[in-house]
Design a protein around this nucleic acid. Structure first.
Lengths: 68, 68
DNA sequence: CTTATATGTAAAGATATCTTTACATAATTT
DNA sequence: AAATTATGTAAAGATATCTTTACATATAAG
């Protein structure tokens, strides 16, 4: 059950730069890039910070893939 | 910003045993105990599985503490 | 009281998450 | 075209998450 995210899409819609967002969330830009690219999933804490940063719920940003 | 959870409380309300729940979620009972006790936070994937297991949202089960 | 069931805890090891440093390419601006 | 800004990537190291094995205590049932 991999987790997919819509971070890049939402970030683009809101016109936010990776660097800006990384600083606001107090993580490195590399962390954000890796997560957007699906290299790994964020911790629960970071996932909640990201969702709330977008004024959205965790489920609106991250989805648990059913198949497999 | 620590993450708090209501897993034990919700599990008790639903009358589910740790072992039963651990098997359903395909994690060890020790993992569940540690998370309920706040020794560490679950991964995002496990957090979403737990919330959905309870038919609840991540935010209903896990809360991001504001202060600090 | 003895047995069984539910929960708590711990240590060692594996893998995942995140940082730091560094470099590379793509896209935008001048 | 040159400079600046935005994004992609990688490797080493630190810490977090999770498993396995094992034992301990608490609560309930016989």
């Amino acid at each position: 059950m991999p987790v997919r995210n819509k971070i890049k899409q939402i970030r683009k819609e809101k016109g936010i730069k990776q660097l800006q967002m990384a600083e606001d969330l107090q993580v490195t830009r590399q962390t954000l890039t890796a997560i957007e690219k699906g290299k790994y999933n964020p911790s629960l804490e970071l996932a909640m910070k990201i969702a709330h940063y977008f004024d959205q719920s965790v489920e609106e940003v991250f989805t648990l893939e059913e198949e497999l």
